[in-house]
Design a binder for these strands. Structure first.
Lengths: 261, 261
DNA sequence: AAGTGGTCTAGACCACGAG
DNA sequence: TCGTGGTCTAGACCACTTT
């Protein structure tokens, strides 16, 4: 039936019909989530190629033994992730891979991740102090109230890339320096039962003063990328305020925006 | 600061019961969208205060004459926007306003918007040229293929803040300089039927060289914020590639992240 | 005209969290 | 224990795009 005579026509994935999705109704994992994960894996592994049509939702639901809303929920979650695109009268297709892939070009970016050499962290300071004005304002406490301050040096390939300064409300959690050097602050927060909801960030730039330059192994006057962030948990309580500076010669922020249409 | 007798208790919004939502089944606007907009407006105007419970979904659907899935869809869209939080066994509540508000502190940020003085734009260059290597790679065309290049100077209060250089595929749309100076590139794209899907951005920093400094009215060696971006439409086709530089002394990126849990 | 996703209904049962 | 949101079903009709 699908006889293509044109250039790169969108075609229903030939593999999809033979793809068997293993749905387990005995696990607590929601069916729509199981389906979404398996679809995502299929996309990731190239079983579903960019531009492939997913097949219509009604057929899919019948074949999988699910209701249409459940199938839709699975598909919608991948649309929200930017992996799929729905088009009325056409179908649901896999977005072209170019859209998904990180920029390979950015020579600024250290590919330490690929090199298997994860980022290292050195804790320079970790104590309870009176909160300075900016931290107090961000955390919603009185100036001078107790807060935990954390200063860390982030390294890649043994060389510094960033100087991280964070303030947390006193008593929020117990921080172990050893774990901080291996695990990262956000994972520790999560482990302690803090459910992150959102964060506000400001990214700017400035030139390094003498001390910063020395600590980051840069010449004075070098460009620095700055980031300040306040993070909130799901009750709206501020749980972290940080001011970070990055060596612009070795680091850049790379991220993807999804457009709300 | 607010004087609280203990932590602010979550209370069902007293106003919600008297709030009348006007749902019009004769318009093509989906019911869930109408409800979402009116809920959002109520939150925006403070009718629904932070921490207020929305009331359970079943009651709401009965009162509104809608099915529960429809009400859920409306609520979910606001949860996705970060305006509401759902908690099992508790209810749905409005997030605390602090989470939603932009950082007022960032002195870097020009509050030109508030001052009613919108950003001005001056088109410095607008022609069809052979695409340079980086633009060609980003746009997915051969190096040297035709592309439209656009150089603009962005001003606030009559002073430069940014130098924007963009490449677009040749023939994508007709660009009118006059409109470019008043409307912005993205609005023009949308008007021309381009449906934006996503963009990849890289944000970095560097110091200004002599020419950049002169054009931006900064001293040589000043810190610049750099941003490069490739935008894609919903078919996965690259529609724009841009490299922008901002005066760090007058501009910073401010944005909110929502955490996927 | 046919096929697709978009919306909507009216129920059901379950899992989690608070009291 | 009880109330909440979380999940799921089996239909229905509509709007849009393509043929």
């Amino acid at each position: 039936m699908a006889k293509t005579g044109g250039p790169a026509r969108a075609v229903t994935a030939p593999a999809l019909s033979t793809l068997d999705f293993a749905l387990d109704r005995s696990t607590p994992v929601p069916l729509y989530h199981q389906l979404a994960q398996q679809l995502e894996a299929a996309i990731e592994h190239g079983v579903l190629a960019p531009g492939n049509l997913l097949g219509n939702e009604v057929d899919l639901s019948v074949r999988l033994g699910l209701s249409r809303p459940t199938v839709r929920q699975a598909i919608q979650s991948l649309v929200d992730k930017g992996l799929l695109v729905r088009r009325r009268g056409v179908g649901t297709q896999v977005v072209h891979s170019q859209v998904r892939r990180p920029l390979e070009l950015s020579s600024l970016y250290d590919d330490l991740e690929k090199a298997g050499q994860g980022p290292g962290t050195r804790v320079l300071r970790h104590e309870t102090v009176p909160a300075p004005a900016d931290a107090a304002a961000a955390l919603g406490v009185a100036e001078g109230a107790e807060a935990v301050v954390l200063e860390r040096l982030r390294l890649t390939h043994g060389r510094p890339v960033a100087l991280l300064c964070n303030y947390l409300p006193a008593g929020l959690l117990e921080l172990d320096d050893a774990r901080l050097e291996s695990t990262g602050l956000y994972r520790l927060l999560r482990t302690s039962g803090v459910v992150l909801h959102s964060a506000r960030q400001t990214v700017g730039a400035r030139v390094a003063d003498g001390e910063e330059a020395a600590r980051l192994d840069e010449p004075e006057g070098a460009a620095l990328l700055t980031m300040s962030r306040t993070a909130y948990d799901d009750t709206g309580r501020p749980v972290e305020y940080g001011t970070h500076i990055y060596r612009a010669s070795r680091y850049a922020f790379d991220f993807q925006l999804l457009v709300r249409n």
